[in-house]
Every structure is written in C-alpha cells, then in structure tokens.
C-alpha cells in the first residue's frame, strides 16, 4: 500500500530522514531567535532592573539575609526534616506491620497529609491554641514551624521508606533467616542497609521539598528574628516598594536547592551502577 502511494506521486521528491531533521532544527532556531529578539526589543529593561535588581536595595538585605533569614530557613528545614524522618520511619514500619490497625492508622495518616495542601496544615497549626485551650506547641515559633513541616514531610517520607524496604527482595530475608538470624537481626544486618542505599536519593529530594515548603512559615505570622527567606524578602520588598529583596531570597534558595538536586541525581546514578 505505502509503496504504491509513494510511487503514485513521482513528481514529489521524498525527503531523507536526515534532511527532515535538519529542516526541523532550522525551524526551531528561527522561532527561538524571533522570541529572544521580541523580548529584548519590547521589554522595558531599565524598569525591570529598577524593580527586580536594584543594587542599593540588594545591599540592604545584608547581612540579615544570611544571619537571620537563611539561618532560620535552615533551622526550620532541618528541624522539620528530622521530625519527618523519624515519624516517617515509624509510619512506614506501621504500614508494613502484620498488626492490621497499625496499617489502617498509618495509611489514613499518609492519605490525609499527602492529600491536603501544606498551607492548610500551617493555617490549622495557628488555630491549635483555640482548639486545645491551654496548649502551646513547645519551642514557640520554631516548634510550630517544625511541627508543620514535619507532619507534612512524614507522610511523604513514610512512602519513601516503605518503597525502600519493599524494594529489598524477599529472598534476602529468607537467606538471612535460614542462616539462623532472628527477624530483627535479619532486618538490621541485611534489609535495612540495602533499603538505606535505595532511599538516599529520594530522601535528598524530600529535603529539597521541605526547604521550599519552609516558605509557608510566612503564614504562621512570624516576625523579627523568626523570619525566613520568603518572609524576609517579602517584608523588605514592601518596605522599599521594590521586588529586588524577593529576587535576592530566590537566588539564595537556588544556591542550596540546585546543588542538592544534583547531589540526588549523582547518588541515584551511583545506585544504579552498584546493582
């Protein structure tokens, strides 16, 4: 069929695949150049620079950008990460437990906290004192922020751990048990060391997620010495009626998130090679 239809149009020369590819590439470059030229000609560069990259405003972010904002972002993130790591491990073990109610509780928790926007959790935390009169989250603002990030992060981290533990073949446990190891000993010497290698890359990605989510601390109504990068940038931007501080915090986030993302990729590649 195809051969005939090609033969039926003798006047139309057929393009070789190579030729087609060259044309497609040329078209893509033309579109790119057109867009770039358009942006360069029509954007108001002076105004943009004035509003997003004003050197004297950028200078005003120092040194608090590092001494307060970045420091707090790191405290919130690391604190939330440790919380999420420990609670996530417990939830994962519960999810794999032979005790059915444990599985239910863990599944319910994971479904709820993965299904809700993280922002909503933070808003609810601000209402905790109303719901539980006399109750305050220990650690004040730091405690509230770490609780919020930890509760959300734990749901995702639990799934990371569960996937890691389940990725270790059943034959590994069986080999360990048939050598006379107890269930706990087999987990500790054979399963968990292998699971850890599997979960390191996704856990690094989880850390990056928490780092970005720490910007939600803004909604806890923090101020002064408790502000983190997002709130810090936002406050200064309002003060100077200029977006440069937000750009500066954005760049600060990227300085941390991009290297971590690359690290996760490298670890992932190494894991594939080791298998």
């Amino acid at each position: 069929m195809t051969d005939q239809s090609v033969a039926a149009e003798p006047g139309k020369p057929r393009l070789s695949p190579r030729k087609k590819q060259q044309i497609s590439r040329a078209v893509q470059y033309v579109v790119l150049v057109a867009v770039v030229v358009g942006v360069v000609l029509y954007a108001d560069w002076t105004s943009l620079a004035q509003n997003f990259a004003k050197p004297d405003v950028a200078e005003k972010t120092l040194p608090e950008l590092f001494t307060i904002a970045l420091k707090n972002t790191i405290i919130y993130t690391v604190g939330g990460f440790v919380f999420a790591f420990l609670l996530g491990l417990v939830l994962a073990l519960m999810r794999l437990s032979t005790v059915r109610p444990y599985r239910w509780i863990s599944t319910l928790y994971i479904e709820i906290f993965r299904g809700l926007p993280a922002l909503l959790i933070f808003l609810m935390i601000t209402f905790l004192p109303l719901a539980l009169p006399g109750f305050t989250v220990p650690g004040g603002t730091y405690g509230q922020a770490i609780l919020g990030l930890g509760l959300v992060g734990a749901a995702y981290q639990a799934e990371v751990f569960r996937a890691g533990l389940q990725a270790v073949p059943k034959g590994q446990t069986e080999a360990a048990r048939s050598l006379g190891m107890s269930a706990g000993r087999a987990q500790a010497t054979v399963v968990i060391p292998q699971a850890i290698r599997i979960v390191i890359p996704p856990t690094t990605n989880q850390f990056v997620s928490l780092l970005k989510d720490s910007s939600l601390v803004l909604f806890l109504g923090v101020s002064g010495e408790y502000v983190e990068l997002a709130k810090f940038g936002n406050d200064l931007a309002s003060q100077y009626a200029n977006a440069t501080p937000i750009m500066v915090s954005g760049v600060t986030y990227l300085l941390v998130t991009i290297p971590l993302g690359h690290l996760a990729n490298r670890l992932e590649k190494r894991k594939v090679r080791a298998r």
Partner: peptide
Amino acid sequence: IDAVRRRIGMVFQQFNLFPH
C-alpha cells in the same frame, strides 16, 4: 526456630547472596 535453622543449611535457586 532460629536454633533449628542454624543446623540446616539452605541453598536457593536465585542464590540470594547479600549484594552489599
């Protein structure tokens, strides 16, 4: 059970060596 298994060696079709 652990004491019994200590006296019984088992060899599997898929080897099941510890890869790490």
